[in-house]
Amino acid sequence: MSATEIISYHAPAEPGFAKIGQAFRRAVVSQLHPRMLLALLLPFFIALLGAIILLWLFWSPLTLWIDQFISAWGPLDALDQWLLAVGWFSLKLWMLPVLVPVMAAGLLLPMAGILGLVIAAIFVMPIVLRHLERHNYPGLKRQGRHVTVLGTWNAIWVGTLFCLGWLLTMPLWLLPPFALVLPVFWWAFAVNRMLRVDALIEHASPPERRLLWRRNSRLLWLLAGCLSLLNLIPLFWLVMPVFSALAYAHFCLDALRELRAQTLIDPQEFSHAS
């Protein structure tokens, strides 16, 4: 069949929330497979080792810097002086012993977490894709190009941008709305920009990837936002790298299979036609 003789197949489109719910359900089932449970170990140990090294090297200088920064922060200093003037209490005296270690942990632990996500994207995602290809998406042809280079470069630059963005926006945590909004935003950014690439680069051709990202941009961000909110749950971060990879892989591979079914042509022919 030539590229101009595409027969469209108008399958009923599922609502966006249904597709995300389906990806989550399938990710839960896949996560319970022994192979996927074993895959949890690598990013977990990398993140744990990273956290230990970061805390050991940077805890003391970082807490000292945060303490000096907050103590010299104009609005807080003015409020503290006013409270003392009216005979109440020193806000710094009560707040700094709690706030400084919380901010230091909030700065260092995500650095270890993003390292775990990078490891999952580079080394675990290929294992995830092979597992899903065998059990959930048999016959889905691989059309990716420059897979290793593309995936590694994407994971590194997204991880670097995440760290820089997290560091630069950290002072905004002192303003109540940003303390919740910024962590969710940066994790959603990292998860989406990293895993949407790794979930498709092995199976989708470059034109297919661009088309799927454009069609599903909002849903992919919504999926990343849901995973980022789950990451606020204390124990979820233990499984987040692999579970997120599974959720993205299910969503993206299902979308790719649907795209190819709608055109009813060979994926290689679609790639050449594009």
Rank of each mutant, 00 (worst) to 15 (best):
G225K: 13
E202K: 15
L219A: 15
L220E: 08
W221H: 12
R215T: 13
L235N: 03
L200F: 07
L229N: 09
A199H: 05
I201P: 00
A224K: 05
E208W: 04
L232C: 13
L211K: 04
R215V: 08
P206C: 05
S228P: 01
L223A: 11
L227S: 04
R214I: 01
P234T: 01
P207E: 06
A224E: 03
W213A: 06
E202N: 14
A224H: 05
L227K: 01
L227Q: 00
L211V: 12
L200D: 02
L211F: 14
L200I: 05
L229C: 10
L222P: 13
L229R: 12
L212F: 07
V197F: 01
A199Y: 02
L229M: 09
G225E: 07
W221F: 10
L232E: 12
E202V: 14
G225F: 12
L211S: 08
A204F: 05
R210H: 11
S205P: 10
W213M: 11
I201F: 01
I233T: 06
L230Q: 02
H203G: 02
L200E: 00
S228N: 05
P234H: 00
W221M: 07
L229K: 12
A199E: 00
A199C: 04
V197N: 00
S228Q: 02
L222D: 15
L219H: 14
E208P: 04
I233A: 12
E208Y: 05
L222E: 15
V197W: 02
S217C: 11
I201N: 01
N231E: 11
L229V: 13
S217Y: 01
A199S: 11
N216F: 12
W221N: 15
A224C: 11
R214G: 00
S217W: 00
L220H: 04
A204K: 07
L220D: 02
L232T: 14
R210F: 00
L230C: 09
